[in-house]
């Protein structure tokens, strides 16, 4: 106890000898920007250690040989570009992401309109129910879908058969397998579009619709000339966000087809896993996953440029 008092008193004396320093530190800590920085610091640390560092590390990794003992520059990338299977993966990833995002956007828009036109009392119930696919962990719901599409004991085929139709090779025919993985992605992702579009619809001023009604506009004209222009930015940002997530999708394809049959459902993430983890070539796996980056960066530049331009026009 005596020691504590002994050390505390001189520290007070020292502090008293330099009041300007203490005032300066206090002022610095009271600044809004300092407080904002300190509050953001945990997030910055997390983003740096879990996003920025791994991203740069994967770029470094993609330039090494398989044993990670030698720098090979862009060797892994040029090797991939010479492989037929890799080009098939590029093509399939594009089909998967573009078609899934398109259908998610269309379904999201239609359901958002339907819900928006429901009486306020019923809206909450429907909103909650339609969000369920998005809330269930994706790995779990993919497994459920896999059971429905099971190659031998498919529940869908059981229904088709009992209705007198032929069975469908959902996962063993490459084209049906592509359809199945896209369908599951649409089922999972459409609620995200729904909720975003619903929020955007709610923010459209009612006076615009009233003015259009006075001018004699029908429902379709209101949708084309009021709703869509007012929702353009949110549509663009939602599509961009979904495009990024869908391009990088792993769970659905890995659980349902693991890239088969005949490599015809592989997307970047599953092919990267096959090369990097299953075949033990981490640098080649890293190079494969990095191919997504320029594609998504170009899409992001175009979409965000449009958003900024419209923002300026409105201002």
């Amino acid at each position: 106890m005596a020691d504590t008092v002994h050390t505390w008193v001189p520290s007070l004396q020292t502090a008293g000898a330099r009041p300007s320093t203490r005032r300066g530190l206090g002022k610095f800590l009271r600044q809004r920007s300092t407080i904002a920085f300190l509050m953001c610091l945990p997030l910055i640390v997390i983003i740096f250690s879990l996003v920025i560092y791994p991203a740069f590390y994967s770029i470094y990794l993609s330039m090494l040989n398989k044993a990670q003992t030698r720098f090979v520059g862009l060797g892994n990338f040029s090797f991939l570009l010479s492989r037929d299977v890799f080009w098939m993966v590029v093509w399939q990833s594009a089909i998967f992401a573009l078609s899934a995002v398109f259908f998610k956007a269309v379904i999201g828009l239609i359901t958002a309109h339907l819900i928006n036109n429901l009486p306020a009392k019923g809206q909450r119930k429907w909103r909650g129910m339609l969000l369920v696919p998005w809330v269930i962990p994706l790995a779990l719901s993919s497994l459920g879908w896999w059971w429905l599409f099971d190659p031998t004991h498919s529940a869908f085929n059981w229904i088709l058969k009992s209705l007198g139709f032929n069975e469908i090779a959902w996962l063993s025919d490459p084209y049906w397998a592509r359809f199945s993985v896209i369908l599951v992605n649409v089922w999972y992702g459409a609620p995200f579009f729904l909720i975003m579009y619903l929020a955007a619809l709610k923010s459209v001023p009612e006076q615009l619709y009233e003015a259009a009604a006075i001018d004699g506009a029908n429902a379709w004209q209101k949708f084309i000339h009021i709703t869509l222009p007012m929702m353009r930015n949110i549509i663009a940002i939602t599509v961009l966000f979904s495009l990024i997530v869908t391009f990088a999708n792993f769970d659905i394809v890995q659980i349902m087809t693991a890239g088969g049959p005949r490599n015809m459902t592989h997307v970047f993430a599953t092919y990267s896993f096959l090369l990097g983890i299953r075949s033990g070539d981490l640098p080649l796996g890293a190079a494969t996953s990095l191919f997504m980056f320029p594609i998504l960066a170009i899409a992001a530049i175009f979409i965000l440029r449009g958003v900024r331009k419209r923002g300026r026009d409105i201002a």
């Binding site: 190659p151 031998t152 004991h153 090779a169 959902w170 996962l171 063993s172 025919d173 397998a177 087809t257 693991a258 088969g260 049959p261 005949r262």
Partner: peptide, 21 residues
């Protein structure tokens, strides 16, 4: 062979024999 063998994972053949089919 049944046409679905092209989509089987390592458990597909197990289920096939266990089912009695």
């Amino acid at each position: 062979n049944p046409p679905e063998v092209y989509a089987w994972d390592d458990a597909g053949n197990n289920r096939w024999i266990i089912s009695g089919k």
